[in-house]
């Protein structure tokens, strides 16, 4: 075969591969993405606006923001603590601890909800005791927060641990030797070094916290205007055949997802975290 022939053949192969990749992503990602907005705006902007501004939808948005506001800081503090002890010290059982941190990724969302029903539900382990004090966890906000925290548990830690490990501990040791105390070292040395990874983890954690469906579905009880998060509200509207309203609310989540992707790619570019 001559080189010219080979080059021509290469071009065809390249064009073919590109076409396959674009068709695949087009069918499975781009078309469904565009469909959300098309369905949401099917009956015009005013119907769309009414569906988004409806009181149950607003209550769902408020609840989702509340849950995200509780869960992300909790998992952020955990991620920092885990990153610090795993990256700066050596101790036996470290790799086992790392595996345990990943555990929630391996658990089906439905099971992530179920375990909290088994602990806090009416028939659960602590159920009778909680009932005595009139504390409601399942089918209430605390249950939704717990299930969401479980599902998003590894996100910040997973981003921070490798970054903190690769940075080592020399800079912190230098600061401490020069007389800075632990907190000052943490705020002035560690945090600036890991800020991109931190932001990246927080964004991923928030996106999942906002969008979690299966786990929250188990513990929420679907009480309209009370324990409905935005994804659950999308489901309820859909099951009631209010398709336009359902897609309208879904389009807010889709816009957030797109914002997440853009933020993610900007951070990746700035910091080369991956």
């Amino acid at each position: 075969m001559t080189t010219g022939n080979r080059k021509a053949k290469d071009r065809w192969v390249r064009a073919g591969l590109l076409l396959i990749a674009v068709l695949f992503l087009g069918i499975f990602l781009i078309v469904p993405l565009v469909a959300v907005f098309a369905k949401a705006l099917e009956e015009g902007v005013s119907v769309y606006a009414a569906a988004v501004a409806e009181s149950d939808a607003l209550a769902a948005i408020k609840l989702t923001l509340l849950i995200t506001g509780i869960v992300v800081p909790l998992n952020l503090i955990f991620g920092l603590a885990a990153g610090w002890c795993i990256a700066k010290f050596s101790f036996p059982g470290k790799s086992f601890l790392l595996t345990l941190i990943d555990l929630p990724f391996a658990v089906s969302p439905v099971i992530s909800g179920l375990i909290f029903v088994l602990v806090f539900g009416a028939q659960g382990l602590l159920g009778p005791w909680l009932d005595q004090y009139n504390v409601k966890i399942i089918f209430a906000v605390p249950g939704i927060a717990l299930a969401t925290a479980f599902v998003t548990f590894p996100f910040v830690a997973r981003e921070l641990i490798p970054i903190m490990q690769s940075q080592g501990k020399e800079e912190e040791e230098a600061a401490l030797t020069l007389g800075a105390n632990g907190w000052k070292t943490f705020w002035r040395i560690t945090i600036p070094n890991i800020k991109w990874g931190l932001l990246y983890g927080v964004i991923l954690c928030s996106a999942r916290a906002i969008g979690e469906f299966g786990a929250v579905s188990v513990v929420s009880g679907h009480i309209r205007g009370m324990t409905n998060t935005v994804p659950l509200h999308v489901e309820i509207l859909y099951n009631e055949y209010q398709f336009v309203a359902s897609f309208a609310v879904a389009s807010i989540l889709t816009l957030l997802a797109i914002a997440t992707l853009i933020a993610k790619s900007i951070i990746e570019e700035r910091s080369h975290v991956h």
Partner: peptide
Amino acid sequence: ALPTAVAGIS
């Protein structure tokens, strides 16, 4: 990034 329920209905 996209909530699974949204992916499902779409």
